[in-house]
Simulated assay, not measured.
Amino acid sequence: MADGALWQCFPRGKKGGAAVGDRVHVAPQGRDEGVIEQILPRSNLLYRSDDMRTKQFAANVDRLFIVVAVVPTFADDLVGRALAGAWSVGITPLIVLNKIDLRQGLDEARARLAPLARLGVPVLEVSALDTQATRRTLFAHMKGHVSLLLGQSGMGKSTLLNDLIPGANAATREHSTALDMGRHTTTSTRLYHLPDGGDLIDSPGFQAFGLQHLSREEIERGFPEFAAYAAQCRFYNCTHQHEPGCGVLQALADKHIDAARHALYTRILQENAAAQRY
C-alpha cells in the first residue's frame, strides 16, 4: 500500500487477471485485506508460455535484465527469445554476465554475447561474490525503473537478488557440474522496492521461453535489426522467409544480419504457426 503496509488482496468474484507489477484500485476488507476492484491500464504485459499453456506473470516493466553466466553454459536460444519478447512490447533489454570471477570460459561467454552487444544490448559484467561492485553496476541501470530479473536456472540469479535486496533471502543452490545445468530455486514472482528508487521483479528460473502469444508483426518487432531492411521488401506483407525481393533476406545474404538471429526468427514463426493449427 502507499503507506508501506502489506495487505493480502483478492480478485472480486471469479475475476482475476492481476499480474506482479500491476497498479490496482483496492477496496479495504477488514484490517489488512482488500479486494481488487480495478486493474489500471498497463504499458505492457509479459507472459511465460510453453506447449501446454500461456500465463501472464509481470506487467508495466520497462527494463529486462537477462542473467547469464560463465558457468553453467547458457542457452543462446533462450536469450534470443527473451530479447524478442522484450523488444516486441517495447521493453529495454540488458544482459547480465555473472560469475566473471571464473576466468576459464569467460572469453567464450563474451564471444557468444558479442553479436548481441553489436545490436546495442548492454552487457553488464558482474560477480555475485562481489556484492558492492554488483550493486554499483546494476543499480545504475535500475534506478527509477521497473526492472525484471530473468534467467535460466543455475545462472546465479538468486544470489544476485540477495546482493541487491539483502532482505530477500532468496534460496540459492549450486549448479550440477556433471549435467552443466542448474535447478529451480525461485518458485514465485515477487516485486521488491529498490533502496534508491525503482522496483525489481524477480521471477522463477526458466528452461523454456515460449512466444506463442505473439503475432507475426510482434515477432518481427522482436528483431529490430530487420527494420531498416524490411522497408526495402517488394511485398508489404513479406514474412522474410522465402519471398523474392525481400530486403531482409538480401541483408542476410550480405551478412548484415546475423544468421543465427534470422534462424531463431524463422523457428519462432514456424512454432507459432504450428500452435495455431492445433
Score class of each variant (00 low, 15 high):
116 L>C: 05
209 F>Q: 09
171 A>S: 15
199 D>S: 08
197 G>E: 04
220 E>W: 12
220 E>G: 08
190 R>D: 01
218 E>F: 00
191 L>I: 15
26 V>N: 09
115 P>D: 04
13 G>Q: 04
39 I>S: 02
36 I>L: 12
121 V>Q: 04
114 A>K: 00
186 T>P: 06
70 V>Q: 02
50 D>Q: 06
129 L>I: 06
195 P>C: 03
13 G>F: 14
236 Y>T: 15
56 Q>W: 08
168 A>H: 06
164 L>M: 13
218 E>L: 08
14 K>E: 09
35 V>E: 14
202 D>A: 11
30 G>M: 10
133 A>P: 02
191 L>Q: 04
181 M>L: 15
210 G>S: 01
198 G>D: 03
24 V>Q: 05
42 R>W: 01
191 L>P: 09
19 A>E: 01
257 I>R: 10
10 F>N: 07
245 G>E: 09
106 L>Y: 10
216 R>N: 11
235 F>Q: 09
187 T>E: 13
171 A>M: 15
176 S>K: 11
31 R>L: 09
213 H>E: 14
175 H>Y: 15
44 N>E: 02
123 V>E: 06
224 P>K: 10
13 G>C: 12
77 D>H: 14
260 A>S: 13
109 A>T: 04
72 P>A: 02
201 I>A: 03
14 K>L: 14
214 L>C: 11
1 M>P: 06
161 L>Q: 11
214 L>H: 07
249 L>E: 03
55 K>D: 09
27 A>T: 06
216 R>H: 03
275 A>C: 00
228 A>W: 07
57 F>V: 09
251 A>S: 03
110 R>G: 09
211 L>A: 02
127 S>N: 05
40 L>Y: 10
84 A>N: 08
215 S>F: 03
131 T>R: 13
147 S>G: 10
134 T>N: 06
118 R>N: 10
116 L>H: 04
26 V>E: 04
20 V>M: 05
209 F>K: 10
123 V>G: 13
47 Y>S: 01
199 D>Q: 05
278 Y>D: 11
118 R>M: 08
170 A>N: 01
268 I>H: 02
109 A>H: 02
199 D>I: 06
206 F>V: 14
12 R>W: 06
17 G>V: 11
243 E>R: 01
121 V>A: 12
68 V>F: 07
164 L>G: 14
131 T>A: 13
120 G>A: 02
219 I>C: 06
6 L>Y: 05
248 V>K: 06
262 H>Q: 03
38 Q>F: 13
169 N>H: 15
65 F>W: 13
41 P>W: 12
207 Q>D: 15
190 R>P: 00
31 R>V: 02
263 A>D: 14
97 L>Y: 05
118 R>H: 00
263 A>R: 12
248 V>I: 05
174 E>K: 11
166 P>E: 08
123 V>W: 08
72 P>C: 10
76 D>G: 07
209 F>Y: 15
159 T>F: 02
127 S>V: 04
124 L>D: 05
240 H>R: 05
254 D>P: 04
147 S>P: 00
40 L>K: 11
212 Q>G: 15
153 S>V: 10
14 K>M: 11
176 S>R: 08
80 G>D: 12
156 G>D: 07
168 A>G: 05
168 A>I: 07
169 N>C: 08
106 L>T: 12
60 N>V: 14
28 P>W: 07
76 D>V: 05
108 E>K: 03
64 L>Y: 08
241 Q>R: 14
272 N>A: 14
218 E>H: 00
120 G>M: 00
151 G>D: 02
263 A>G: 10
261 R>I: 14
